[in-house]
Design a protein around this nucleic acid. Structure first.
Lengths: 253, 253
DNA sequence: GAGTGGTCTAGACCACGGA
DNA sequence: CCGTGGTCTAGACCACTCA
């Protein structure tokens, strides 16, 4: 069965319950398991994947806590109707946001190449000086309207096939999401005035303030990506809503 | 032993691992286990409480995900040094941030009054037209340097004493935090060019791009606060780091 | 090497939902 | 009633840290 083959050759450095989580997430994202539909029971998965029920249970329980699944005792486990609520740090895929607002998402690839890390780049990104990394610059548009420039440096070890992707079809975010599970992220948000190059790429004037989002991600302590996202504030802003999860997180007013 | 007596009479409707979580939380909050100090090992607790290690492990694991504890394999489990790390949506108190960087926080009160909600304000904030709400405008400074303007509308029902506070001593955030437990929040972040009033209050030129943060909070479905925070980007930016809680929320790259 | 946490297993009992 | 998820147990092996 397809479910099983995904995991049975187990060279993965990840624990089993993590692999199960990733497997389920991919199934959902690939559309094999639609929102609202029932997924296999714990016992099904125990048989199919040949693991203990506690392992399956932990995977499903954590996905439920994260909002991907909904469980009803006596009835079954279902794919959550919408996307999980997010902490702000996990910012949504801009392609999703555009599509969800009824827009049409395009992605122009302005650069996609490998590059040797010099001192300056090393200081900016944290990658090893002298090593070779992938570099992409893409523009996300809604119809004709440029919404965001994404300037990414990617660790080749974690996404060796990065240069061969067609980013007009799958966004770098989406590709990386399926490639490497990221375990940690750092983010900063600033307001800036765009320089000339940004103005040209985003088709705006220098007067228009922009949001600058810097994001660095890790996969188990190895640096995965270091990116800059720049959006004209007239066309993009960050939004989120929040409920405390377990017991006592505080919300500031 | 004290630890054990807390649970041994087990009429509790809560599952065991929950009781263990509560027990540990209480120990921490009562100060028996100080921040940074080591707490008993899993095996200690297994013996003391007479439960299986998996049960103890789940309790401690979840507390770790919530940020109350820190675990180091081979070394032990420790009470987390500060407040639990937060998702970005709970943005830190600016007073804390300033103080933590070695600055000196001041708060000027530029306005503190009640106000009748007209149509325009109702549309902006979501408060009932015609009702009376509290309104404050404060400037947070680091030494002489203005860092942020905070423009707040507050529901009098949830903070009836708001107008009598001395916000030069306790910030509105801190006051509201102690007054009403907030259950939900909405946030948006934009980049803007400051208008003339903002320029004056923050002592900047109109050229300098600013971050505009809008935050609305609820307490059990009643609107609590609706606020605008404006900061010059040269003096303030939003930063955060993120670890998935139960270990695989998605992080975008 | 002893102690620690991280994970996994193969069972078990229970509470709930739906036929 | 059966199948579902929710929890719990008593073991086990491993990777890591520290003395």
């Amino acid at each position: 069965m397809a479910l099983k083959t995904a995991i049975e050759q187990n060279d993965s450095p990840w624990p089993l319950y993590q692999q199960v989580k990733q497997l389920i997430i991919r199934r959902i994202q690939a559309g094999h398991w639609q929102p609202g539909s029932k997924i296999p029971t714990e016992n099904d998965l125990v048989e199919t994947l040949g693991m203990s029920r506690m392992t399956i249970n932990r995977a499903i329980r954590e996905l439920t806590n994260d909002g991907h699944l909904i469980r009803r005792r006596g009835s079954g486990t279902f794919v959550a109707p919408r996307k999980p609520r997010m902490g702000l740090l996990e910012i949504r895929s801009i392609a999703d946001e555009i599509r969800e607002q009824g827009g049409i998402h395009h992605c122009d690839v302005h650069l996609l190449d490998e590059e040797r890390v010099n001192k300056e780049l090393a200081a900016q990104t944290g990658f090893e000086p002298g090593s070779v990394i992938f570099h992409s610059v893409t523009i996300h548009r809604n119809g004709r309207n440029p919404i965001q420039m994404a300037d990414r440096y990617v660790n080749p070890l974690l996404a060796p096939d990065y240069l061969n992707q067609d980013f007009t079809k799958i966004t770098p975010s989406e590709y990386l999401l399926h490639t490497t599970p990221l375990t940690e992220a750092n983010i900063s948000i600033d307001a800036i005035s765009p320089d000339r190059q940004i103005c040209r790429l985003l088709e705006i004037t220098a007067k228009e303030p922009c949001l600058l989002i810097r994001r660095t991600t890790w996969s188990k302590k190895t640096l995965a990506t270091s990116s800059r996202f720049i959006s004209p504030s007239s066309r993009y802003s960050i939004e989120g809503s929040f409920k405390p999860r377990s017991t006592s997180q505080q919300i500031l007013a």
